[in-house]
Amino acid sequence: MPLVDALLHEAGKTASDLDLIGVGIGPGNFTGLRIAVSTARGLALALGKPAIGVTIFEARSYGLERPLTVIEDARRGDVYLQQFDTDGPIAPPRLMPWDRLCDLSGIARVTGNLRAEAAALWHAEPVPETVMIAEAIARVAEEKLASGADLPRPAPLYIRGADAAPARDYGPPLL
């Protein structure tokens, strides 16, 4: 919140001047995503204005020529990846092990925080972002609002499931 406050102050605005809150929904650190999404939803509720979620794939590919593949570090030897055609995403974002990336072919252009490594693997062209991530999120959110589509409230895009094991003890056999 102090960052939001400082930013608004710098822009000579107050919260009530906002028409829309764009928020990055990941994937990424679960707790970090919930912090951002909860804050955005609280602000939206207070202001009576919409909050719109933007994935990291939408933000990273903002303003870049397509077809394009966005690849982000998912830790634990995995990556998050989504491929875009000129018409938009060709499939939902997915999680895959780095070792399996060599199975993908025909990728010409790649962006995201692992673009250098992935470009080398695929002999593709690494494409740097043209705008900073927060600005890209705001711009994509604006486009989504302008599209007039019925948008859900922002929710974290986890992709990775929760670490939870079913109960081990199912109780004794009943006689």
Partner: peptide, 20 residues
């Protein structure tokens, strides 16, 4: 449980900030 507490605190901060 910190995950839930954090979500509540952040939503409340957004609300308090927006409503002043």
């Amino acid at each position: 449980l910190i995950g839930g507490v954090l979500s509540g605190v952040m939503l409340a901060k957004g609300l308090a900030y927006g409503l002043k």
